[in-house]
């Protein structure tokens, strides 16, 4: 861990240098009020540095919405298809919650059966994080994901005229050593401004969720009628899951070609709010109604994952709140379960 500072005017040079380590991806503005990860086009002005949440989070770089796992052939057997697996990718502009979400996914995909599709890509990805200022939907602080001490190669904190450059890995060190002229040592003023930034950001959180004792409370609230009320509003459209940086469920399906000899095995993002998710042979469904499916999602984030890995699976990015057409609000719902007055 070392810290440097870089004047903002050097950002183009910094990004140019990043290009030596692979393809650089940045958040860009999309439509009226959305952002998307896209390949850097060389224009610094096109980077949405103020973007808080892209429509789809960074997970799409390791874990594709729909991808071929392998191709099969009656005579030649299986061929693993992972065309862009060996591509070096640099993510510039991921925030603290995003970096925490990668750790959350790493835990899952490194489980009993290591997921090579995920890790082959993951190891080739360079993480360059940037600081942010929360909006009314951000609750990462409540989820303990508002700051990062590890999990990145470089982290840029916006201090006005310059960035504080946090170097978090040896690859990060290589990157700053590639262009030593643009960095300066931190000084007293940097420290002062950094602490000011931290305090200001800390005070900016409007959305707060008390997570203490939440797993127990959720246990007690298992039969709360609110689950079914929310289930009646839920469209099962899948948006909350698709945009969630820590949702990882997938579905596997085989397709066959007209020759009846060759085909492909696919996997595709799935969602526990879908009817088919808990549907088994014979038409039996473990979660028959929508309220039960919604409850399952919440309980998995705040209870089951925590039991396995010691922290909640939610990083508080606010994407599911923004993306729900029916205005179902994760935080409001959990507040209601805690007995706090809300509009859920």
């Amino acid at each position: 861990m070392k810290s440097l500072r870089m004047a903002k005017r050097h950002l183009p040079k910094f990004l140019e240098s990043l290009g030596k380590w692979g393809k650089v991806y940045v958040p860009v503005k999309l439509g009226k009020n959305s952002y998307r990860w896209e390949e850097f086009d060389g224009e610094v002005d096109n980077i949405a540095l103020d973007a808080l949440r892209t429509v789809i989070p960074a997970k799409k770089f390791f874990y594709k919405p729909r991808e071929v796992m392998f191709e099969y052939d009656k005579t030649n057997g299986y061929t693993q298809a992972c065309a862009e697996c060996e591509e070096d990718v640099i993510l510039f502009g991921i925030h603290s919650c995003g970096i925490h979400s990668l750790e959350t996914l790493d835990n899952i995909f490194a489980g009993k059966y290591v997921d090579n599709y995920y890790f082959t890509r993951r190891k080739n990805i360079t993480i360059v994080g940037t600081s942010c200022m929360p909006d009314k939907h951000c609750f990462c602080k409540s989820m303990g994901a508002d700051t990062v001490d590890e999990g990145y190669d470089i982290f840029l904190t916006d201090l006005g005229d310059d960035f504080l450059i946090g170097v978090g890995s040896s690859k990060g060190d290589d990157i700053v050593n590639d262009n030593p002229d643009i960095y300066e040592e931190v000084d007293e003023s940097t420290t002062k401004r950094y602490l000011e930034f931290r305090n200001k950001r800390d005070e900016s959180f409007e959305l707060v969720l008390d997570t203490s004792d939440l797993p127990t409370i959720l246990d007690f609230q298992y039969d709360n009628p609110l689950w079914d009320e929310l289930g009646e509003r839920c469209l099962a459209c899948g948006s909350c899951s698709m945009v969630c940086p820590t949702c990882y469920c997938y579905n596997v399906d085989d397709t066959i070609n007209l020759d009846s000899e060759t085909g492909e095995r696919w996997r595709e993002w799935d969602c526990c709010l879908f009817r088919d998710h808990a549907l088994v042979a014979g038409g039996h469904n473990f979660r028959e109604n929508q309220g039960g499916r919604l409850k399952h999602r919440y309980l998995h984030k705040q209870q089951a994952y925590l039991g396995d890995f010691g922290r909640t699976a939610c990083v508080g990015c606010g994407r599911c709140i923004v993306a729900c057409p029916a205005n179902i609000d994760y935080v409001e719902c959990l507040k209601a379960m805690r007995g706090e007055m809300t509009s859920a």
Partner: peptide, 11 residues
Amino acid sequence: CTECKFKENEC
């Protein structure tokens, strides 16, 4: 919506 999210469209 799920497919629309795959495409990363603005809602």
